[in-house]
Every structure is written in C-alpha cells, then in structure tokens.
C-alpha cells in the first residue's frame, strides 16, 4: 500500500499549500494539471496525439462563463453545463478524428479546433476579442461564497481530485487495459475482435469532457473566458506540459503543468516575456531529442535502476 501513502501525503500537502503559496497561482496549476491529465489520457494511454484540445478547454470556459453571466444558475450547474458541452463537442470531433490515425489524427484535430476558434471569434455571445469578462464566481450550493480565494481553492482542489480519480479509474479499468492494448498493438486489438474506433471515440469523449471541466473551472477562477483558451497555442501548451512532465505516466502532466505555469508566471512578470515562445519551443526540441520520458518518466527510470 505504498502508493496510497504517497497519495495521502500529496493530499495533505495540497490542503496546506495555500498557506505557503498564492492561491490563485495554485488554482491555475490545478486547472492546467487537470487539462493536461485529460490530454494525457489520449496521448499517453491510447497513443492519440490531439492537437486541438484547446477547443474543449475553451468550450467549457465559454459555456460556463455565459451561464454564470446570463442565467441565474450557480457555479456547480454552470460547470456541469460547460463540461457536458465540451463532451458533446468531443463526441462530434472524436467521431470524425478517429477515422484517421497517427499524424493525420493530429492534423484533423488541429483543423477542427481551428473551426471552433473561428466560431467563437465570430459568434456574438463570446464577446469576440474581449472575451467574457467579469464572470461572477457565485456561491457554491448556496453556502460557500466562492469570491473568497480560500473557498475557491478547496473547490478547485475537489474538482481536480475528482477528475484525477476518474482518469485513474479509467486507466485501471478493463476498458483502460484495452486502450493500452490499442496503443501497444492496434492490429492485434482489432484481430481480437475489439472495435478499436469505438474505444478511441469513448476515451476521446471522456478526455474532452474533462478538458472542458478544466476550462469551466479556470473561467470561474479567473472570472474570464477568452480566445486565448481556444487558440492553437493553448493546444500546443498542453502537449508541452504532458511531454515535459512525462507522457503515459499518471503524475507527469501534473508536474509538467506546474513547471510550465511557473515558467510562464516568472517570465510574464519580467522583461523576458518576449522570450516565452522561444523558451517553450526550445523545451519542446530538448524534450523530443533528449528527454523523451519527461520529468516523471526519467525519475521512475532512475528509481528503477538504483533501488
């Protein structure tokens, strides 16, 4: 039961973290960590590289933002609506994307995400270039005022743990074993009688809904939904987080999200802000050439070798 102790320690650390670190920063890390975990469910465990996951993050964000602004619904229902909307979009996009494999899959998802980008750019409810601003955080279950950062933090933490648990559960279920079989040897999975495309489709929906959940939560945290979230740069960022942290490891995306968000926060404050894309690009190149297992993957290798 070593692994459970590990989770317990992390959980306790997460509970006390806001006493040491700025809660909004922590919430940003948690949102992106959930986003990256959802993405990694596809890339790391099925071997599908989606280059359009920003579409789901953004859809969740816009729908939740619009619900909070224009309907009387509370944060829990608005987040649910954002998640469902992203899941539905994922159902449509996934159905199309699983028709192609490998590199084509990446190009199809990228192009589909661009379609979503132009939709949000042009449709009147998103506020165009300004985005949805001043989204209220509301009151959770009519009891907890989320405009308080500490309340919001524990709410975000609960959402993250739920998403993380769901991904963990999916990977370790019989369904998850079939996904791994598809990743390792797709023709064999087909020959064993599995309808591979349906499995890919279902996991694509789960992944996009969770990405939407991350986007919905992020909109509440920052009280803003904008085009940045649906731009292809965002799709690239989540790939980077996963690659840097370690694709196919359950904790890699969390670590990767933490590192990338920290770098961004550090750079955007100073005069180095201009260099952010250059640095991200260089991290990509270095990761692919020399550091393919990512931080967590390399760490696991080291532990295996030495202990």
């Amino acid at each position: 039961m070593k692994i459970n102790k590990f989770y317990l320690v992390l959980f306790l650390l997460a509970l006390v973290a806001p006493t040491a670190l700025y809660p909004v920063f922590l919430m940003k890390v948690l949102c992106f960590a959930l986003f990256a975990c959802a993405f990694n469910l596809l890339l790391g465990f099925v071997g599908l590289l989606s280059f359009g996951h920003a579409a789901f993050l953004g859809t969740g964000g816009y729908v939740t933002g619009a619900m909070m602004l224009h309907t009387g619904m509370g944060p829990e229902l608005s987040i649910l609506a954002g998640t469902v909307a992203a899941g539905l979009l994922g159902a449509v996009y996934g159905k199309l994307a699983v028709k192609r494999e490998g590199i084509y899959f990446a190009m199809v998802t990228l192009a589909l995400a661009q379609l979503a980008f132009f939709f949000y750019l042009q449709s009147p409810f998103t506020g165009g270039e300004d985005g949805l601003q001043g989204v209220p955080r509301g009151t959770l279950l009519g009891m907890f005022d989320l405009s308080d950062n500490m309340n919001m933090y524990y709410f975000v933490l609960a959402i993250f743990i739920f998403g993380f648990w769901l991904i963990h559960r999916t990977i370790h279920s019989p369904f998850g074993q079939i996904l791994k079989a598809i990743r390792e040897n797709e023709p064999r999975a087909v020959s064993l009688g599995y309808n591979v495309n349906d499995y890919k489709w279902v996991v694509f929906i789960i992944s996009s809904a969770l990405a939407g959940l991350a986007g919905s939560t992020k909109t509440l945290v920052f009280q803003l939904a904008s085009l940045t979230d649906v731009h292809w740069h965002m799709s690239g960022e989540v790939v980077l987080m996963t690659l840097l942290g370690g694709m196919g490891t359950i904790f890699g995306p969390v670590v990767g999200a933490g590192v990338v968000v920290t770098i961004q926060n550090y750079l955007s404050g100073g005069e180095l802000g201009n260099y952010i894309h250059i640095i991200m690009g260089l991290i990509f190149i270095v990761c692919v050439l020399a550091f393919r297992s990512g931080i967590v993957g390399e760490f696991q290798k080291m532990v295996k070798k030495n202990f």
């Binding site: 590289l49 590199i103 990446a106 790939v239 260099y275 690009g281 050439l289």
Partner: peptide
C-alpha cells in the same frame, strides 16, 4: 535534429518541428 529521431514514432518529429516553428516565430516576433 530530425534524423536522430528518424526511427522513433513519427509523432515525435511532429512535436520537434512544432518546437522549431515556435522558436522561429518567437525570434521574429522579438
């Protein structure tokens, strides 16, 4: 850059060239 990873999954070369694109775009924006 590309040849050292020629034998790997082709997704890696996609990511590698994506990184190159980000660097070039960043440099010229700068």
């Amino acid at each position: 850059l590309v040849r050292p990873i020629a034998g790997e999954d082709h997704l890696y070369s996609l990511l590698l060239t994506f990184g190159i694109a980000l660097v070039l775009q960043g440099v010229f924006t700068h």
